[in-house]
């Protein structure tokens, strides 16, 4: 059966490249003793594919991977070494958190129990900075994660004093019919139209103060807060505080047209007449979506 895993990248993991994350997940699955299906051939490798690489330095709560796993018995508890609650001294393991209700995996038993088991084991085997949020079984007709990606949602945090000019720039950009950009590749310069790649460009300014920046994760368990699953449908987050503003972007992503959030940021600066040296304070990927805008976690 093929499962889809939603995971995030936090802290140090933001600086781990795509191939290294891929290799790490192969290790996490083996640590979790989840029986993987292997490819044929002389050097078999686990069948696993990732939706879309994330740029170095970006955090995320909306990463996906698909993996093919063997049928597994769920009654048997995972091996003792992985079950043990880690001592306070050990940062390697992850305490198994309480089960929460997920919108995924409606197949009912026994599929649900397999999903629960896989989730539990992955969480015990991963590191706090590579949180695993949810697992579901993919239906036969669902396309793989990589092929399904059509859009990506990002949140850019930046200095509040830029909010006003950037909001105006966003309005102007969205009012354009087309927005041609020259893109330099190694060999040539190609031009393409950015405008149809923009699904959402929203600046949210701070109002009042003291409100937590998004995500308003619960303090006791910030990594595994169940709200993370519903981000795709959630209304835009509460106003950030502390002199920071937020830019929400939904952009074309995947194999057909892939627009990086940094590019849109640069275009907004240009449009607003701001110096190109201005950088966002942080960029976070919130979710990946299909061509029609539904979250990859819900397909």
């Amino acid at each position: 059966m093929i499962i889809r895993v939603r995971f995030g990248k936090e802290g140090a993991l933001r600086f781990i490249g795509h191939l290294d994350v891929l290799r790490t997940f192969q290790k996490i699955f083996r640590r979790a003793e989840i029986p993987m299906v292997y490819s044929q051939g002389y050097s078999p490798h686990p069948i696993m594919s990732f939706a879309l690489p994330l740029g170095l330095g970006l955090s995320s709560e909306g990463e996906y991977l698909d993996a093919e796993i063997e049928e597994m018995a769920v009654q048997s508890p995972p091996p003792a070494s992985l079950c043990e609650a880690p001592s306070p001294a050990s940062g390697g393991g992850q305490a198994v958190v309480d089960e929460v209700a997920f919108p995924f995996g409606e197949g009912g038993p026994p599929t649900q129990s397999v999903v629960d088991e896989v989730l539990k084991r992955l969480r015990a085997a991963t590191s706090p900075e590579l949180p695993v949020y949810a697992v579901r079984v993919l239906s036969e007709k669902a396309g793989n994660a990589m092929a399904s990606v059509g859009r990506a949602r990002y949140r850019l945090t930046f200095r509040e004093d830029l909010a006003k000019p950037l909001a105006a720039a966003a309005d102007r950009l969205l009012a354009e019919k087309q927005h041609i950009i020259e893109k330099k590749t190694k060999t040539q310069t190609v031009s393409f139209d950015l405008r149809p790649c923009l699904y959402e460009v929203t600046v949210i300014r701070a109002e009042g103060s003291g409100e937590e920046p998004h995500p308003p994760a619960s303090q006791d368990d910030p990594l595994f807060a169940p709200h993370c699953l519903r981000i795709a449908q959630a209304p835009p987050p509460a106003f950030p505080g502390g002199g920071e503003a937020v830019l929400l972007l939904v952009l074309s992503a995947g194999s057909k047209a892939n627009v990086k959030p940094e590019l849109v940021w640069e275009e907004l600066l240009k449009t607003a007449g701001l110096p190109a040296e201005e950088k966002p304070l942080a960029i976070r990927r919130l979710d990946l979506m299909t061509e029609d805008g539904s979250s990859l976690g819900e397909v």
Partner: peptide, 13 residues
């Protein structure tokens, strides 16, 4: 940059 950030599996905090 991964050389300098730590946080690997089985590191001790």
């Amino acid at each position: 940059p991964a050389r300098y950030v730590g946080g690997e599996l089985n590191t001790v905090m």
